[in-house]
């Protein structure tokens, strides 16, 4: 990896990228809540809702991940919060994809993997959100 050169400006986050990352969290948190509702009611419509919320979250996560990877290449660094953000988004995308496949199972077969994975991606989406907001703040301070 290329070492960050002195004097190079800190990585900045485009506001649209921040909006993409911010879009993931409510969808994945919503999926987790729907999974929990399914767990307590066994009403399959809740897991249908969860599957759609996850699919929506994956659209945001996919674009946000792509943007973050392009940024890494463009800035030629994996260090700092930009690197962490890309890593968080990658983990989010992989776990989210597995969660989508789990939600394609029928009826109670999504238990308990579904809610566990939904909790993981919900936490990761909050981490990604915190990282992206902190990158925005650093830009303003600089």
């Amino acid at each position: 990896m290329v070492v960050v050169q002195a004097g190079r400006p800190a990585p900045v986050l485009h506001p649209l990228q921040a909006a993409l990352v911010a879009g993931i969290a409510p969808l994945f948190i919503g999926a987790l809540l729907c999974d929990l509702a399914y767990g307590s009611t066994a009403e399959p419509q809740w897991s249908n809702f969860a599957a759609w919320l996850l699919a929506g979250g994956m659209v945001y996560a996919g674009f946000a991940l792509l943007w973050a990877l392009i940024d890494l290449v463009r800035l030629r660094t994996t260090r700092g919060r930009a690197g962490l953000l890309a890593l968080a988004l990658l983990a989010l995308f992989v776990f989210g994809l597995v969660d989508c496949f789990v939600h394609a199972r029928d009826a109670w077969a999504i238990m308990p993997d579904g809610p566990i994975l939904s909790a993981v991606v919900a936490v990761l989406s909050l981490i990604a959100l915190a990282l992206s907001l902190s990158l925005l703040r650093r830009e303003r301070v600089a």
Partner: peptide, 8 residues
């Protein structure tokens, strides 16, 4: 109406 009750 389903494979295995996934429609309730």
């Amino acid at each position: 109406n389903s494979n295995i009750t996934e429609r309730g």
